[in-house]
């Protein structure tokens, strides 16, 4: 049975950049545990001959020709940006390091 602790939820929230208060963690952690339990019941009916499935479609090798096609103009691309400078997206100072 999967088990998800309050610490796990806090850790995932940090990774997902979701700021959760202590009260929210208390509230959400047990709920997530119940959701995981419910989904885990699938494994009870999955037989040995059913492989884990990541894709619903029975397709492989769906490829595109290597041909450049027009995308958006810079104006269109930047139209939703909160701030623009030098035809680039302006973002707040980055803490931490480059990937």
């Amino acid at each position: 049975m999967p088990d998800i602790s309050r610490d796990d939820v806090a850790h995932l929230a940090t990774l997902a950049r979701i700021d959760l208060s202590d009260a929210e963690l208390d509230h959400l952690a047990p709920q997530l545990a119940v959701i995981l339990d419910s989904i885990a019941s699938i494994s009870e009916v999955a037989a040995e001959d059913v492989p884990p499935t990541s894709h619903a479609l029975p397709l492989t090798n769906v490829f595109r020709e290597d041909v450049a096609t027009p995308g958006l103009t810079a104006e269109q691309a930047l139209s939703g940006a909160p701030e623009v400078e030098e035809q680039r997206f302006s973002v707040p100072r980055i803490l931490g390091e480059e990937q």
Partner: peptide
């Protein structure tokens, strides 16, 4: 990065 006010992305 250090000391930068903001970053511009292309």
């Amino acid at each position: 990065i250090h000391g930068a006010d903001h970053s511009l992305v292309d």
